[in-house]
Each structure stands twice: as structure tokens, then as C-alpha cells.
Design a protein around this nucleic acid. Structure first.
Length: 818
RNA sequence: GCCCGGGUGGCGGAAUGGUAUACGCGAAGGACUUAAAAUCCUUUGCCCACAAGGCUUGAGGGUUCGAGUCCCUCCCCGGGCACCA
């Protein structure tokens, strides 16, 4: 029979009353911060995949609690942001109103999954008491020079009508709505995450995270060790030769003598046009066209195009004059926006040179001879056609040639600064004010940002005004710009009328620091309490989705490092231990609203009871692996729980009834195995062991209640209600020492010596094939084992000749090679 | 193209280099029942009439007394990055 709501409510009440899940954050001795990525509350409610993750995290937390830790397992809602807002637009309900409805539904569902949440500390990112501090962080970023404004080509989602960070563009598409992203020239706020590139890399060495995530972050940061070489420019109209120059970045300075041209990005071309260096009509036209083309598509098309700029560079290696081309295959956002073209040893350069009939000169050779190259050779070799460097190994030549050419080492990163502005309504307004008067006078809070002031901290939060029309209009300005009342503000410096920044900040800023706020969510005077932080942070266990590898998981590390630098905290990696959860599919497809295959947990919890659902989700696969949701599987765990109930009717009346040695061994082995499995988040095998144990206990004529007690404790993290129910029933036994709740532990201990076997089955193999499994006493010697085997009637036939070789693995296996 | 995961019965999955297929689902047969559901018992990788035996972890090689596990080559699925110089 499915678990009743009454039973569930009964225990929820007891737990609340006794604050089983509410550790005293200031006082506890053995803190354990058990954190899950908080949900982005969509209107359709909690997703079965989130339920699996959350209950999985909870299984782990309950286990830790029973082991004697004061577990803090908070929950909240990441409710600000484009997702919620887009949905609000779709159904025509104001996001602020929608949030309240969604919130209620979400908390109801989160309450129903049986987790040991610390409800007193829940928070929502759209609560002004929360985003006040999100804004405070922005202000600190500005004050420390880590927030800046810059006009540049940025990612623009035409459907969401806002800019996006690079991390939010997935193969040219908007992370949220999958529309093709285009480039737009806009002035935006950025956070200087690139200042932390090296430390973000270094920190990865110190944290226990899945390799998958670490590799993704390393690739995203994209550290590349190379060299910078300067090419003087000649042929600029009206300018002296060699007065100006261009820097290029390369990882292959050994190919310097093979340079036959230089290619620069259209953006750099535009700069040079503005400087008056490029005057060629054709080149100017090309730059205009290619920049325009890019505004239609985020990625430049595969087809390489280009035009000669009219000016030349001097190769500092051999003093040769090479033409400078402008081409779409050169990225403006990486390196210097200019590359040296070495067609013989770079595939892309080869393609370009072939297309535009530029010369190709081989300078690296595998055998020291010249070849008629049909394709680029990018490998190592011996230098040829390279003047005094001929004969040098290419690897060794890198340093020497760079030095000779007057260049130097340079490290480049792929990582770009975090674009945090959003031209949307449903987010924390960026707490900045622009004063035109100050700007005109060249004044500002920071030298490099004239006219800009951060909002006085005492005036935070800058409240998001209620607006009837909150629709993004695609003008490149937030809907907030339409509210005159909101925009008008006094300049913090000169007190004249100034205007507020009207963009809101990225949702990922909201979630970059929530784990601090959980620890003290109601404090109005500061973002967090240093004493409590010291006690609880960094987080002991963090679990969440792999899709955040280079989003949330990168930003959150960056913000922690900034806090560390500002001496707010004493650690710089917020999550020393992180584990990913697998993805749950339905009929093999990702669950999504558009596919209409979202599984709502409510019906299942209603029908089977929350314990059966929790156990089914845990039994599917290890937490880190995903799986396909099929309701058929729930019957297994439902039956299991019914049998647990039935077993309670079979308890021995007295406590004296002992257990067989075999049963005792199974019990102790189960304690060990289940503990280890839960520690490794392998709940599936923990449940399997519980099933094995239950099968054995059922076969007893009557079950000693002590054995049942242990069983219930082992079950407790997985099925919190069932275990509590039958645990509490044990109080009718006189000698039972009842804890307030089974969930307060202690976790049972096993004795290693009780697990030790007296006899075992020795696997007998002949030429690697198993022929028998014979009972033998533990610790038997090879000689004694052989004796028994040779006497065995069934095995005699194999030993017509004596074995050439014998491999003996004590207490396990013997293999005869005949 | 590059970088990560992964490929084991009808299905989900289990296996420190040492009995592959634990545990569960499903299926088949039986018991109980007027009947069904529920429950309980038995069987359940493949070949073979049984036994004996043989075969089997995507494919093919290799190392080893012994390989799902280690190495090489390749195929397929999932994910990430992608003109990064």
C-alpha cells in the first residue's frame, strides 16, 4: 500500500517541532554544509529531474546527519531572470505576480519531496532584501575597478531582445530560446573575469571536482603560451615608414621566415581606417561589408574572404616586405586581432593563400629538403629557408627566433570578460548613476569612467519599480528606461539631476553568491555574518548540473576569489567538493515544455508515496548518471517498502533472540557497503544491498528487533518516512533506546571481524576456465588447497598430466596451466 | 576537425585484472481465489532434446596464467568546443 499523506504529515510535524533540520547556525560544533544548485522556478513546477537531484543530495545529507554532523541543507529560488520573464510575457501575467504564484507552488512541491530542508533560511533572488546585496556586490566590483563599461561588438539575442555573455551563447544560439545570436555594437557593463584567468585555472588543481567540469573550464579559459612579435608598417599614406607597427601573437615563431603576408581582422581594419592608415576604397568597402555581415550572424561564415589593405609590414626576421590583408578569418577578440600568415605550416593560412594566390614558402621540413606542398605541414621539423637558423630543430628555434626578431613571450587567454548588463526588466537594476555634468567636466568616481558613480550603499536597494509595460523593445535599452521616475536621480557627487543605469544585471550574478546569504538571510545590515561564514564555509558538498560547467560554476568561483581579495572571506574556492547529477530523460528525449514530455512529480508522489518515488529515482543509476524515466520501475521500490512494513509484524518479542553468524555477517557487511555507497553517491547499489538484506531477514522465522533497527537506520536516508514510522514503533520494546528521530542517528557501526569469513569458495580454473568452486577455510595454503583439489572426484579428469604452472590467489582463486 | 563521457540480458543496471550478468523491472509457469488484483513460490544471457560441453560485455588485434576492466586500431551513441593563430 502506498504511504499515506497522514503518515507523512505526522513525521514532518515531529521533525519541525524538534528542529531536526534546523541547526543553530551560530552554535553547532560539527557543521556540514550540504548544498544543491537552487532551482530556477518555472511556472510548470518542479521537474522530476530536479526531484531526483534534490532527493539525491538529501540522501547524502541525511547520511551525514546520522553520522553526527550538524547538516545545513538550505533551499531557495533563483527566480529573477529572463526565463521567468519570458514565461510571464507569454501568458500575459506580470512577472512579480507570477513569481508569487510560482513560489507557492514550488515550495509546496519542495516540501513534498521529503527533504531535510532548513526552511527558516529559504530565500528568493527577487526579494529586495536579497538583491540589495547583489547590487552591493556590483558596487564593490565598480569600486575595485573590476566593473567597467565598454562599447564593443556583443552577442545580441533578437528574440530575448537583450545582450548575452559569451558563456550564454551555445554554438551561436541563445542559451534560453535557441534563437541565432547576432553581433551588435553596444556600450555595456563588464566584469573583469579575465583578470582572474590564471587563478581560475590554478584553483582547479586544488578542488575535488569531476574532470569533465575541470576540463571544460580549462578549455573555456583557453590558456595559450606563445610569443608576441612586432612588424613595423610601411606604405601608410602620408606617414613615415616604420613609424607605426602591428603586434601579432603566435605559437609558432619558428615559422617566422615563412611569413608571406599578414592578416588583420575587419575590426582592426576599421580602427586603421579611422586612423587614416587605410585609404584604399576596396578595403574600406570590405571592412564595412564584413562587419555588417557579422551583425546578421554571430559566427563568421566558413568561407574565407579578404582584401589587400594597401599597406605592408616588415618581417623582423628577414626584413622582407609582406602585404597586409584584411580577412574575416582573423578574430578580433583573440590575441591582437592580427596574425602572421604562414601558408606552408598552417592549414587556414594555406587555404587563404591558395585562394588569393599568395606565395607559400616552406621553412619547416621533416627531412631537411624542400617539397612541393599540397597542404600545410603543421608538425615539427628542421628549419630551412630561414637564414642563419637553417638546420635548427623547430622546437628549439622558437625562443631564438623570437629573440632575434625582438619579440617576447606572451600568454593569451580565450576567456573574455563577463558581460553583465541585460536590457530586460526582471532583474536587479544595476546600481549606477550617470551624471552628464560631471562627465562633461571629466569627473567621475573612477578616473577611467568619467560621469559614472555607484549608488551610495546606504541607498541600496535600488528597487525594481513595478511597471505595467515591462516588455523588452529591442532598442538596446531596458524597459526601465521608459520610467522617468526611475531614471531621474541626483548625482552623488555634484547633486545635479542625473540618470540611473536602466539595465538590470545577469541572473548569474544573483546565483554567484547565494550560498553566503543562506547562512544569514534576514540580516539587513550586511550581506553575511563573518563569524557564521567562518564556521560554515566553504561548502562541504555541492551537487548540480553539468550544464553549468562554464556558467554558474565559473562565475561563482570568480566572485569568491574577488571576495577573498577584498578580505571579506578566508577562502577562495567556494566548493572544494562538487559532484554532478545525471540528466533524466523521458523516452530518450530531454524533457522540455515544447516536447510536452515533462514528468510532474506530484502525481507519482500522490500515487506511490514520496519514499517509493525517492527510492525509485535513487535506484535508477548512480546519481552522477542519468536515465530514462519509466513509471514501470516504481513498482519495485513500492513492493520493497511494503515488505519493510510487513517485516515489522514479524519481530521477535524478546531482545535475546540471537542472529546466526551468517546473518550477523550480512548485517555488518551491509552497514559497511551501504555507508560506502552513499558516500560515493551510488544509491542504486546501496538500495540493492538493502534488498539483499531484506530478502534474508524475511527468511527468518522471526526477526530480532535490533536487526530491524539497524535495517531501518540504513534505510533512513533513502526512505525517511517509512524508516521513521517503524523506528518509532520499536519503542514498545523495553530495552530500545529511542532517539528523538531515526534521522538523528547514530549511523550503525560495523565490526570488521564480524565481516571476516571462515570459509570461502575457492575458484578452481584450468587454463583460465572455471571448472569448480570449492569450499575452503580462509587462509588455506596453496599446498593444502591443491591437495583437496587433486582428491576431488569431479576434477580428476583434468589432471591426467601434472600442471606446468599454478597461480594461487589466496582466499580467492587457483589457476592450473596444463 | 579537436576534447570529454559512454556502448554489458527483453529493460534499468552490478562487477579492487580473478565465478560476467548482483539487485530490480518485465516475461513465463505454479500456489491462493468462483474470478481478477495483490501476495507467495519456481524459471529466466545465448547455442544444444537433456546432460556434458561450448559461446557471450560495440568490432578487430595485443599484453596476461587470467581482460567488461589495461594497451593499440576502428565503429556507433551522447555532450562540449570549434578559423583561438
Amino acid at each position: 500500500m502506498a504511504q499515506s499523506k497522514t503518515l507523512q504529515n505526522k513525521w514532518i510535524k515531529l521533525w519541525r517541532k524538534n528542529k531536526v533540520y534546523e541547526p543553530d547556525l551560530k552554535k553547532v560544533k560539527n557543521p556540514f554544509y550540504n548544498l544543491m544548485m537552487f532551482p530556477y522556478p518555472s511556472a510548470e513546477g518542479l521537474h522530476i529531474g530536479s526531484v531526483r537531484t534534490f532527493t539525491g543530495v538529501d540522501i547524502y545529507g541525511r547520511f551525514k546527519r546520522m553520522q553526527g554532523h550538524d547538516v545545513f541543507e538550505p533551499i531557495g529560488l533563483d527566480g529573477f531572470g529572463i526565463n521567468s520573464e519570458n514565461y510571464a510575457l507569454k501568458i500575459g501575467k506580470h512577472p512579480a505576480k507570477l513569481a508569487k504564484i510560482t513560489e507557492k507552488n514550488f515550495y509546496r512541491q519542495l516540501d513534498a519531496i521529503g527533504n531535510g530542508f532548513a526552511w527558516n533560511e529559504c530565500l528568493e533572488t527577487y526579494d529586495a532584501e536579497y538583491y540589495k546585496w547583489t547590487q552591493w556586490i556590483f558596487v564593490q566590483m565598480f569600486k575595485k575597478g573590476l566593473a567597467y563599461r565598454k562599447k564593443s561588438p556583443v552577442n545580441w539575442c533578437p528574440s530575448c531582445k537583450t545582450v548575452l555573455a559569451d558563456e550564454q551563447v551555445l554554438s551561436g544560439e541563445c542559451e534560453r530560446c535557441n534563437s541565432a545570436v547576432i553581433k551588435k555594437d553596444l556600450e555595456q557593463w563588464f566584469f573583469k573575469i579575465t583578470d582572474y584567468a590564471e587563478r581560475l585555472l590554478e584553483g582547479l588543481e586544488r578542488i575535488d571536482w569531476p574532470d569533465q567540469i575541470k576540463i571544460a573550464q580549462r578549455n573555456w579559459i583557453g590558456r595559450s603560451e606563445g610569443y608576441s612579435i612586432t612588424f613595423p608598417l610601411v606604405g601608410i599614406p602620408g606617414e613615415e615608414n616604420r613609424k607605426h607597427s602591428v603586434d601579432i601573437f603566435t605559437t609558432r615563431p619558428d615559422t617566422l621566415f615563412g611569413v608571406t603576408y599578414i592578416a588583420i581582422s575587419p575590426e582592426l581594419g576599421l580602427e586603421w581606417i579611422d586612423k587614416g592608415w587605410i585609404k584604399k576604397e576596396e578595403a574600406i568597402k570590405y571592412v564595412d561589408n564584413s562587419i555588417l555581415a557579422r551583425s546578421r550572424k554571430e559566427k563568421s561564415s566558413e568561407e574565407k574572404t579578404g582584401v589587400f589593405s594597401g599597406i605592408y609590414g616588415i618581417n623582423p626576421g628577414n626584413q622582407e616586405k609582406v602585404p597586409i590583408w584584411i580577412s574575416n578569418y582573423v578574430l578580433s577578440s583573440y590575441g591582437t586581432g592580427a596574425v602572421m600568415g604562414v601558408p606552408a605550416h598552417d592549414e587556414r593560412d594555406f587555404e587563404f593563400a591558395t585562394k588569393f594566390d599568395l606565395s607559400i614558402r616552406e621553412v619547416i621540413s621533416r627531412d631537411g629538403r624542400d617539397h612541393d606542398l599540397r597542404q600545410a605541414y603543421a608538425g615539427e621539423g628542421v628549419l630551412i629557408n630561414s637564414g642563419k637558423f637553417n638546420g635548427t630543430n623547430s622546437e628549439n628555434a622558437k625562443e631564438e627566433i623570437t629573440k632575434f626578431a625582438g619579440g617576447g613571450k606572451k600568454i593569451n587567454y580565450r576567456l573574455r570578460d563577463w558581460l553583465v548588463s541585460r536590457q530586460r526588466y526582471w532583474g536587479p537594476p544595476i546600481p549606477m548613476i550617470f551624471c552628464k555634468a560631471c562627465g562633461d567636466a571629466g569627473r567621475g568616481e573612477r578616473k577611467d569612467m568619467s560621469g559614472w558613480y555607484s549608488v551610495n550603499e546606504k541607498e541600496l536597494p535600488v528597487k525594481l519599480p513595478f511597471m505595467e509595460n515591462y516588455k523588452p523593445d529591442g532598442t538596446g535599452e531596458s524597459p526601465l528606461a521608459k520610467s522617468k521616475k526611475f531614471v531621474r536621480a541626483r548625482c552623488p557627487k555634484c547633486k545635479s539631476w542625473a540618470s540611473r543605469e536602466t539595465d538590470v544585471s545577469d541572473t548569474f550574478l544573483d546565483s554567484s553568491w547565494y550560498y553566503f546569504r543562506y547562512l544569514d538571510p534576514k540580516d539587513k545590515t550586511r550581506p553575511f555574518d563573518r563569524q557564521i561564514i567562518k564556521k560554515w564555509l566553504p561548502v562541504n558538498m555541492y551537487i548540480g548540473g553539468a550544464e553549468h560547467a562554464v556558467l554558474h560554476l565559473l562565475y561563482v568561483r570568480f566572485i569568491a576569489k574577488a571576495f577573498y581579495d577584498w578580505k571579506l572571506i578566508g577562502f577562495d574556492e567556494p566548493f572544494p567538493k562538487f559532484r554532478i547529477n545525471g540528466l533524466i530523460t523521458k523516452d530518450g528525449a530531454k524533457m522540455s515544455k515544447s516536447r510536452g514530455n515533462i514528468v510532474n512529480p506530484d502525481d507519482y508522489i500522490e500515487k506511490f508515496g514520496v519514499d517509493a518515488v525517492r527510492m525509485y529515482l535513487a535506484f535508477m543509476a548512480p546519481l552522477g548518471e542519468g536515465g530514462d524515466f519509466r513509471d514501470a520501475g516504481i513498482s519495485g521500490t513500492t513492493r520493497f517498502l511494503a515488505r519493510v512494513e510487513k517485516l515489522s509484524e514479524k519481530l521477535a518479542k524478546t531482545s535475546k533472540e540471537g542472529l546466526s553468524e551468517k546473518m550477523e555477517r550480512l548485517l555488518h557487511f551491509s552497514i559497511k557497503k551501504i555507508g560506502e555507497d552513499i558516500e560515493n553517491l551510488h544509491f542504486n547499489t546501496a538500495i540493492s544491498q538493502l534488498m539483499i538484506l531484506l530478502n534474508s531477514l524475511e527468511s527468518l522465522p522471526s526477526v530480532p528487533w535490533q536487526a530491524y533497527e539497524i535495517f531501518l537506520k540504513l534505510l533512513a536516508p533513502l526512505a525517511p518516512f517509512t524508516s521513521e514510522e517503524y523506528y518509532q514503533q520499536l519503542k514498545k520494546h523495553k530495552s530500545f533506546r529511542k532517539e528523538l528521530s531515526v534521522h538523528l542517528g547514530p549511523w550503525p557501526k560495523y565490526e570488521a571481524k564480524k565481516i571476516a569469513l571462515e570459509s570461502f569458495k575457492l575458484i578452481v580454473q584450468i587454463n583460465g576456465k572455471t571448472r569448480a568452486a570449492l569450499d575452503m577455510p580462509v587462509g588455506i595454503t596453496e599446498k593444502d588447497a591443491e591437495k583437496r583439489i587433486f582428491e576431488d572426484e569431479n576434477l580428476k579428469k583434468y589432471f591426467s598430466t601434472s600442471p606446468k604452472k599454478t597461480i594461487f590467489v589466496p582466499d580467492r582463486l587457483i589457476n592450473f596451466v596444463i
